[in-house]
Nucleic acid binder design. Structure first.
Lengths: 204, 204
DNA sequence: GTCTATAAAATGATAGAC
DNA sequence: GTCTATCATTTTATAGAC
């Protein structure tokens, strides 16, 4: 698929530098709201030098999205049929919550893209993501049919894990504004709350 | 606060036209990603004519945000101390879900603003919104202390209602992509799922 | 109130020297 | 590989006729 490339140390370094800078900028302003100038400044490169490594603004954004996609899907892929059902769900939820805490920019990059209609990843959502969710929804449904998990809609269950965990990255400023400056880290309380929520919802 | 204005019919009509168009455009592209040209085209006005009614792009955006804010807070304000606790919470959740279904552009306008750091409404979040949530969290905590609602964190309970309901507006394309074209309206199933979720979480 | 024309700044991208 | 200079477009906003 992707053509094999041999890159020099300096190429690897600059591509990493640009990716890092672009992640910060795109996740904060969205695709159309971001400028190549901003990214170049953030990466400490001149604009033409940045465009020596990527042919266009669109290319940088596409590179980020496809690179991050597999990281993003990994936690759901790792939810295994043969585990203890409630523990599998709780582990998935906790991993997603950790990603919100440790990689909020990645979360906001996707949030920006999807809120704005997902023009650049809609196809991937309809194929890769849908297939993965279909598969895992079947697993969850099996658990419910076996009486190992209380019944509820498996698709909306997955949506609820996404929305509840990503909220702490995507709406971080609002969460902090409401909790006030005295509560600096909302994540420990969030984890306790979400554990209770999914346990009460799903315990058989 | 706002200076009282007497507007002609034509002024009211055009301001409404511009607001409507701007809501569509800003909610889809965010502030920086939107152009005055787009809004003018959408409103069937020339760009200078649009700028005759609003002094700048920023002014249109600000007008929208402050106009919509009270609509946005109304459902939480209406949650009353003297009702049946679980019903009050479920009613609030359902009203929020209805807003996601009936006013998705408003939801996405705020989502865009907050994901991008809420530069234009952060102050309002730290005052009006925080005060309202503080007040309602106290009410909920009272219900829990009286044993009329199972205990859990009232702040994160409110966050969870926001994230779960707004998800169906803000991430609409993703929800539809995953459910596939055969499931055209996700809201009925969402309402059943969320009713189950909050009932199991909160029933004493 | 509405329009055409246009100024002034920003932005994406390229040319070409080193 | 990196830079300065620059082009072509887009974009916000204004001038001024009607």
């Amino acid at each position: 698929m992707t053509k094999p490339v041999t890159r020099t140390r300096i190429q690897r370094k600059n591509i990493a530098l640009i990716s890092e800078a672009a992640l910060s900028v795109f996740s904060t302003y969205g695709f159309r709201g971001s400028t190549v100038d901003q990214i170049a400044r953030e990466a400490n490169l001149s604009k033409p030098n940045l465009l020596y490594y990527f042919p266009s603004k669109e290319a940088i954004h596409g590179h980020l999205l496809s690179t991050l996609m597999e990281t993003w899907l990994a936690p759901l892929q790792d939810m295994k049929d043969d585990g203890e059902p409630l523990e599998e769900i709780l582990t998935y939820m906790r991993r997603k919550l950790q990603m919100s805490r440790d990689h909020p920019r990645e979360s906001r990059l996707f949030a920006n893209e999807i809120v704005q209609g997902a023009p650049r990843i809609i196809e991937m959502l309809e194929t890769e993501l849908k297939d993965l969710v279909d598969e895992k929804a079947k697993v969850i449904e099996g658990w419910m049919d076996d009486g190992r998990l209380a019944k509820s809609d498996p698709y909306h269950l997955i949506f609820s894990i996404w929305s509840l965990t990503q909220h702490y990255a995507d709406f971080d400023v609002q969460v902090r504004a409401v909790l006030g400056p005295e509560n600096d880290d909302p994540f420990p309380a969030a984890e306790r709350y979400l554990t209770t929520l999914f346990t009460r919802l799903l315990a058989p």
